[in-house]
Every structure is written in C-alpha cells, then in structure tokens.
Design a protein around this nucleic acid. Structure first.
Length: 800
DNA sequence: TAATTCGCTAGACCGA
DNA sequence: TCGGTCTAGCGAA
C-alpha cells in the first residue's frame, strides 16, 4: 500500500545497520518531522580502466578487507570518458576500504567520485532540494518515488537557545561548572529557564535545579516542531556543553528529529554540531560565511558588536566574573536572566533576517541548511558543478594532489587592469561599470575547462582571447551552462522585484534570491583559479582576465574618442569626466553605443553621475589607485579605499578624514577643513580625546610566537597574554598607543588596560590624523606644516 | 582547512 | 640615525 506524503525536505542522512547503509529523508509535515528511508540507493564510485573485461575480473576476484565486497560492477557510458565502471557497495564502510586500495590493482587507471559523502551523493543524484517542497510516494517508511514541488514563499519554524554557565575565575569547564540558566526564544515568546531564589521577571520559569533546567530545555526543543534551531557559537560552546552536562546527570540532550543527540563533526580546527532533521544554524558561523561574500561587513564577531553594527543597539554585556558574582550573591539575577534572554532573541533575529538568503542557496546547490550555513565559496561552486556533471552525464574531476596544488600556486594569473588616476579634484563625473564582468565574459565567450583549445579553425578565429587562448563555439561548456542558467534566473527575479515596493515581503524574498544567485555567479571565476579546485583551469582563468582588461581599456579609448576625459578605472569600471558642452544624454548615448558592440550578455552600465570627486597622490607622486571619494548631486558621499573605511585606523583619524572630505567635496571649502584639522590636533594635544576614539582594531592572524615582525598589535597582544588574557588566532583586538615606551610597539596596550588620557598625543597627530588628511589637503595646495602650526593662509581658486 | 589578483601603507628590521 | 627592504594587514574589484 503506497501513499503520498508532502512536506519540506529538511535533511538527508544515512544509517548503517546489519551491513547496509540506508538513506533517511527528513520531511517537515504538518504534525511533525517524518522520517522515510530510501532502501534502494547504495553507495558507489567509478573507476576508469584500461580494459573493461580484464578489470571487471580483477575487481570481482578482489576482496579488499575482511568481507569487503563490491556488490555490483556495471559498465557505464560517460560523456567525457570511455571505459568506465561503476562499483556499487552495500555500505559506506566497504566503499571506504575499497577506495583506499583500488588504484594499486592492475588495469585500473583512476578512481573517480570516490570522496563524495553518501547523503550528499543522494542529494546530487535526485531532483529534490533541501528547504524546498517534496512529494514522496511511500510504503510504510520506505520511499518509492520522490519529486520536487516548489514552495514559493516558505515559512520555517525557528527558535534559538543560549546558555549561561558558571565560570569561577576561568573559562567554564563542562566537567565541573554547572549551567546556570538557559534561554529559549521563538518569534512569539522568549523564556529563561533557571533555578534558585531571587527571580521576579516574568520571563523566568523557575525549576528545581540544573538537571531540571536541562530537562525543561530538552522538552521545549524536541517533538519535531522546529525546522531551525539557531545558536550563537553553538558549534563550539552551547551544544558540546549541554551534552556533557546532560551526560553527567544521566540525561540525553536528544533534540534531533529521531531523538538523537547532536553529533560533533570536525571541520579542520573547528567542530560543528549536527542535528538530524531539525537544522542547527550557528549564527556565528553563518555571519562569518556571509561576511566572506560582503553580505555583511563586520569587524568583531561577538554578539554585542554584531548587534551594535546590525541594529545600532547597545546590548548589555555581562562579563563572566560578574555573572558569577550575580549568581553567587543572588543579587539582580533578573538582570542576568534578561541578558541571557537577549542573547537568544538577537540570535533568532539575525537568523531570521538572513534565512531567506541561506535557504535560497540551499535550494540552488541542493544541500542542507547545516551544510550551507558553514560552507565556503568553493564548496558551493563545487556542488553546482557536480550537480551539472551528473545531469550531463560527465565524470566529475578529482581533487588535485599536493604536487599539483603546489604547481598551481607557483603560477599565478594576471588579474584586472587598474588605471592610474589623474590626481586632484574633478567635477562632473560619470561612473560606468560592466555588470557582472567575469561571469558575463564566461557566458559570452563560452570560457570553460572543457571548451578550451578546440580543433575548430572557426572558433580559433572568432573566439580567441587576447592571451591567445580560444574557446569552442559549437557546444556550450560546463561552466557557461551553469552560469547562463544562474544569470538568466537572476535577471528574471530582478525584473520581477523591480515592480514591487521595497518594503513588500515579496520584494525582500526576491531580493534574497537574486543575492544568492549573485554570490554564486561571482564565485566561479575564483574557483577556476583556486589551487584545490576540481575544475582548475589556468587557461580559462587567464583568458577571462585578458578579455576583461581588453574590454575595459577599449571602453576607455572609445570614451576619449567620444570627447570624454578618462579619470580612472579599476577592473570593470571607467570614471569619465564630462567636459563643458557635453551632458548626461551624451553619456547615455555613449553607453548605448558601446553596448551594441558588446557580445552576448555583456553589458556596460551607467552607475551614476557625480558632482565632484577627489583622487590623491602617493608619497612617490603617482596617482594612488583604489582610493577616491565622490559626491553625488544629492550630497551623498562615497568614500573608497581611504583610511576612513579601514578598521585598522583610529576613529579620531577616520572621522576627521571624513569631515575633511565632506567639507572639500560638498562645501568646496578647504579653509573650513583646515580649521577642523587644527581643532582636532588641539584636542589631542590637550588630552581631551577619549579612549574610544583612539583605539586601533587589528586582527591577530597567527599564533603570537609565529610572528617575524612584532608590530604594535602583536606587542599589545603579547602584553595582554602575559597578564592572563586569552587571545585566539582570528580575534580582533583593539589597542591604544600610550605615553610609556620607546617604540610604537612598546607603547601599544590593549584598550581595556589603558586609563583615559594616557595616550601619546604626538603619535595620534603625526601617525594618525595628519597622514589621513594630508593626502587630501595636499591636493589643494596645503602642506603638513600648514596643518600643524597654522602657517600662512592660502588663497585658492579651486571653486571659482 | 579552503575563491582570485591588484594595490596601499604602517612599522619593524637591518646594515651601513 | 638613516634609508632601503620586508612583514603584515586590509581594502577594491
């Protein structure tokens, strides 16, 4: 008896029992999470062989370990290779043993697709998409058939939890230190579970002790009601901690859809905590992931800093020694509870904000939320390519070995072209840029590892890149195939979104979808030149940049021919100055004319018009690249590359620089800028500047003893460690240059150890404020001395 | 423990 | 103590 069930596919995993590995599907249904099994799908990989029959015989006779057998061997046709055998196994363990030894056998050339995890393999081989709808035809718990159905506007039940733990003068140790409280937030309600006296907050649900706290939290979280559980660093802290504490009490934190505990998966130096069914989204990991793509721009990743940056809210941070004090003295435990509750609430808020984007990525790359929320760009691209390979019946390339990786690293590819700017002030500018330059080159010129250097004379003549590589025009390549479909999807969505109000829920959803597509589109070029890529192609990568350089320089030349000035250009953009006698329409006409001549989907876009712009010179006197500021006709500033946008400069220098740029560009008044600078310098001299304006943030990128040159940030970190503070690799520290010490490094101290007023005024004047503003003032004829002493006045006629 | 190259700038480091 | 070179970090695209 078969029946149909319908729901959202949350997860796929496998279990091994009695010598068989079986796929499980987790389906969000109305009542809960249904678990179904695909008993027919077996683990497999391929081998390329010299001689089919001989190889078959060898393989059949071979037993790799105790009882390790190949369940079946079949010959398969692949689009890119002949003589391929598919080896199927009863379970994953057999596959693992077999793949370790197989290449040593005679007649085997190469193993292929042997390192794709079984559950991922299932997803790649089926049409279903995680976080999208699925209709399963089932017999009992066994799946007979599975198909996708689109859910346009999905809604997911999500919640977040957070723990506060005891930490007597050191970092909490799950073996000894109890959980004090646990907060649990859903979009509707937020509660805190705890024990002991002194609570009066309505949010707090008091239970008897720690054990009951764990029990109560477990109860809230299981029962298959949740699709997503969000934590903030649950991978490294909350989950491992509560598992350990549970075990101590003889409990199990069994909040997976099948009642299992979260499993730890090691991910390089870090771990991840995986729940089956219900998806664990570690918001901390997700934000790291999103910041790699520029979706968010965060400096520090602790929850307080993140909340401050995302929502402009100063959330209270209670330090661990104070947590202990409040708990022990039972004073103001409500405040502690509120703090704990806020952590969950904000974690959930951030999760929900970015969920649509991540969900869209899940669907596109056909992997679970757990995977995507922790993935890298290369993994996302790889999933897409592997999916396309399966659809077009191609054997997926293997990962490169170490020697190949080293080879690749030794031969970098020439990148984009950057034009040296004409420094100084410019008026009436138009900025043009190629929309999605590299992806559109790939699509329009069919750039792909499998189309390079074909034998057709015609392709060579018509489709050669400036670096002499050419690409076949007869058949679309693997990479362009994928990019074309992503590109077209994105165009369609953008068009649809354009018709909607920006506050419309549908708009936000469409925007998340187009953003997901953009992320993927932009990741392919990097993947082609990524040293560990399965589809590395120096030829393809260098052709892309060669074409890019050619196109952007060609547009520059054409612009000059058309009578515009070309002020600057970087990789995919041109900054034109519009001379007297020309207007906006002339620019538009120029763009139109260029677009008629561009091939395929390539497109030059008019980004905007700007009233003024400033470019500065380097110490050497050349125009500085990747540094400029523009102001549009509405008065909006766009500051690029300057210290103002860098985190490793003090606020006092950055804000002064911004104000100087604004005064110069918006008001055209360098004298006002000069006044501002002198005022700042005076404040510094008089000790009036607060520490918060003096902090410099820098990331510690390696272990402290691994530095060859001890810069101020390393020196400050070392001193802090000597005082007992922990500083991990990857953490961002804030330091101040104090009065005591000889070198700058000697004077550097972590912000938290510096008393107000104890700063080296000369340093902040000479090394922070002046260097930040002199670049700009120099363009207007001022010297360093003018800034510092208040030298002679300049009469300048820059603004008529 | 995982996309690329181009570019700027600081401060340490090192030898004269 | 000077000036050149190297290490390091971060941003633009």
């Amino acid at each position: 008896m078969t029946k149909k069930v319908k729901g959202v596919l949350l997860d796929v995993d496998y279990v091994s029992r009695e010598g068989k590995s079986t796929i499980r599907l987790f389906l969000r249904e109305e009542k809960g999470i249904g678990i179904y099994k695909d008993v027919n799908f077996k683990p497999y990989f391929f081998v390329r062989v010299n001689h089919l029959e001989k190889a078959k015989k060898t393989l059949k006779e071979n037993v790799f370990g105790e009882d390790t057998k190949i369940a079946s061997i079949e010959r398969v046709e692949k689009a890119n290779f002949g003589n391929v055998l598919k080896l199927v196994f009863e379970n994953v363990q057999d596959l693992i043993i077999a793949r370790a030894n197989i290449t040593s056998l005679p007649d085997i050339i190469e193993k292929s697709e042997y390192d794709i995890p079984f559950a991922k393999r299932w997803l790649l081989d089926h049409e279903l998409e995680p976080m999208n709808g699925a209709i399963l035809e089932v017999e009992g718990e066994k799946v007979r058939k599975a198909e996708l159905f689109e859910i346009a506007e999905p809604k997911f039940a999500s919640a977040a939890f957070d723990l506060e733990t005891y930490s007597p003068g050191r970092f909490s140790d799950a073996k000894k230190d109890p959980i004090l409280m646990a907060s649990f937030a859903t979009p509707k309600k937020s509660i805190v579970l705890s024990y002991g006296k002194g609570f009066s907050s309505k949010k707090v649900e008091c239970v008897e002790n720690e054990k009951e706290t764990i029990k109560a939290l477990t109860e809230r979280m299981n029962g298959g009601k949740l699709d997503v559980v969000a934590t903030y660093n649950g991978d490294m802290f909350d989950f491992p901690y509560i598992k350990e504490r549970s075990a101590k009490f003889g409990l199990r934190f069994g909040v997976g859809a099948d009642g299992s505990e979260p499993k730890t998966r090691s991910k390089g130096r870090d771990n991840a905590e995986r729940l089956v069914g219900t998806q664990h989204l570690d918001v901390y990991q997700m934000l790291r992931f999103l910041s790699r793509f520029g979706v968010v721009n965060l400096i520090k990743f602790d929850l307080e800093s993140v909340v401050a940056r995302l929502y402009n809210v100063e959330k209270e941070k209670i330090k661990f020694d104070e947590i202990n004090r409040l708990w022990d003295e039972r004073k103001d435990v409500d405040r502690l509870a509120e703090y704990c509750a806020e952590d969950s609430e904000y974690t959930l808020k951030i999760a929900e904000q970015y969920l649509p984007l991540i969900v869209e990525l899940c669907r596109l790359v056909k992997q679970s939320l757990f995977e995507v929320g922790r993935a890298s760009a290369s993994m996302l691209v790889e999933y897409l390519i592997m999916d396309k390979c399966r659809k077009t019946n191609m054997l997926i390339s293997n990962k490169p070995d170490d020697a190949a990786i080293q080879q690749r690293l030794m031969h970098p590819v020439k990148g984009g072209y950057v034009k040296e700017p004409e420094s100084g002030l410019h008026e009436n500018l138009a900025v043009l840029d190629f929309s999605s330059l590299y992806p559109t080159i790939i699509i329009s010129h069919n750039v792909s590892p499998d189309t390079v250097g074909c034998e057709h004379k015609e392709c060579r003549e018509k489709n050669s890149a400036p670096n002499a590589q050419w690409f076949c025009l007869k058949e679309r390549g693997l990479i362009p195939k994928i990019l074309k479909s992503l590109f077209e999807k994105r165009m369609k969505i953008k068009k649809e979104a354009k018709a909607l109000d920006k506050k419309d829920k549908k708009f936000l959803l469409l925007n998340a979808r187009q953003h997901a597509l953009k992320i993927l589109l932009n990741s392919f070029y990097g993947y082609l030149l990524y040293s560990r890529s399965r589809f590395y192609s120096r030829e393809a990568g260098s052709a892309i940049t060669a074409w890019a350089r050619q196109y952007v320089q060609w547009v520059g030349k054409e612009a000059e021919k058309a009578g515009f000035g070309v002020v600057y250009g970087d990789t995919d953009s041109e900054f034109l100055s519009i001379p007297k006698g020309k207007n906006r329409q002339d620019v538009e006409k120029f763009v139109e004319k260029i677009n008629k001549q561009l091939p395929g989907v390539m497109n030059l876009e008019l980004e905007g018009f700007f009233k003024r712009g400033i470019f500065v010179t380097k110490e050497s006197g050349e125009g500085a690249k990747k540094k400029y500021a523009l102001i549009d006709y509405k008065g909006n500033l766009k500051i690029v590359g300057f210290e103002y946008v860098r985190r490793d400069w003090s606020t006092i220098a950055k804000e002064t620089q911004r104000e100087v740029i604004r005064l110069v560009l918006a008001e055209g008044d360098p004298e006002k800028a000069l006044k501002k600078i002198r005022k700042t310098i005076n404040a510094l001299r008089n000790g009036k500047v607060s520490n918060s304006e003096l902090v410099v943030f820098t990331q510690i990128k390696r272990k402290l003893d691994k530095y060859e040159a001890i810069g101020p940030h390393v020196a400050a970190a070392k001193k802090a460690v000597a005082k007992g503070r922990e500083i991990d690799v990857g953490s961002v520290i804030g330091y101040i240059i104090t009065k005591s010490g000889k070198s700058i490094s000697d004077k550097a101290q972590l912000q938290e150890y510096v008393k107000e007023g104890n700063y080296d005024a000369d340093y902040y004047i000479e090394h922070q404020v002046v260097p930040a503003v002199i670049k700009i003032m120099r363009e207007l004829g001022y010297s360093k001395e003018d800034l510092i002493q208040g030298g002679k006045q300049h009469k300048l006629a820059f603004f008529g």
